[in-house]
């Protein structure tokens, strides 16, 4: 086997900001959006200091926990849609959570994996998933996700986002993202415990 180049395999891909812009435009007012790692960094930048009350930015995080936290939120808040914006490195760190999600079967949970093939926030080292050529869509299907999608360009993603977010879940969508090496990781938007308290209050409305 020949290892792919350190920058990852050549492929059609979106910019992370363009892919996240679709989520920002399509989310409903009662939707929870969970972000982590590079998606958290760019989500905060796009919000320009005005995060929504139902934005849960996982900084600081335990890498890989976004899908698990999203599962718990979806189970506790069945009347809300919960959208998890995960990275592929984070997904690899908690791949079993896809099985746990299907076992619990929350119809209101959407897992979006922004796959750039690298650990971007630590300097764009290639992931083992990229080396191995993991087909995350096939993994999600094999785990039993009811609705599975893949998008490689922002036009197609934008055109189908309503369908993806409105599908009976649990839903999985892979978004092919171009790495942006050299950009630092996310910075905390404030003390986590205080943000936690405000988030709980927002969920009670």
């Amino acid at each position: 086997m020949t290892a792919p180049p350190a920058t990852g395999p050549a492929r059609t891909a979106m910019h992370l900001v363009d892919a996240l812009a679709v989520v920002r435009a399509k989310r409903g007012p009662r939707d929870v959006v969970v972000t982590t790692m590079a998606p958290a960094r760019d989500w905060m930048a796009m919000a320009a200091g005005e995060l929504e009350p139902l934005d849960l930015v996982l900084v600081p995080s335990a890498m890989g926990q976004a899908t698990s936290m999203g599962l718990g939120l979806a189970l506790a808040q069945p009347a809300r849609r919960v959208i998890v914006c995960n990275g592929d490195g984070s997904m690899l760190m908690n791949l079993g959570s896809l099985v746990s999600i299907v076992a619990a079967a929350p119809p209101n949970l959407v897992v979006l994996v922004f796959d750039n093939g690298v650990y971007e926030v630590t300097g764009a080292q290639i992931t083992p998933g990229s080396v191995a050529g993991v087909d995350y869509v096939a993994v999600a299907r094999a785990c039993g996700f009811k609705s599975v999608y893949r998008f490689s360009d922002p036009t197609a993603w934008n055109a189908s986002a309503d369908e993806v977010l409105g599908a009976v879940g649990p839903t999985f969508a892979l978004l092919d993202i171009a790495p942006t090496p050299g950009v630092p990781g996310p910075r905390s938007p404030g003390p986590a415990a205080e943000r936690s308290r405000r988030f709980i209050e927002a969920l009670r409305v």
């Binding site: 926990q65 698990s68 999203g70 599962l71 718990g72 939120l73 506790a76 908690n94 709980i200 969920l203």
Partner: peptide, 13 residues
């Protein structure tokens, strides 16, 4: 995973 799921449940009430 269990702690993350429990965290989400707790946040959700």
């Amino acid at each position: 995973e269990a702690w993350g799921v429990a965290a989400g449940l707790h946040w959700g009430g």
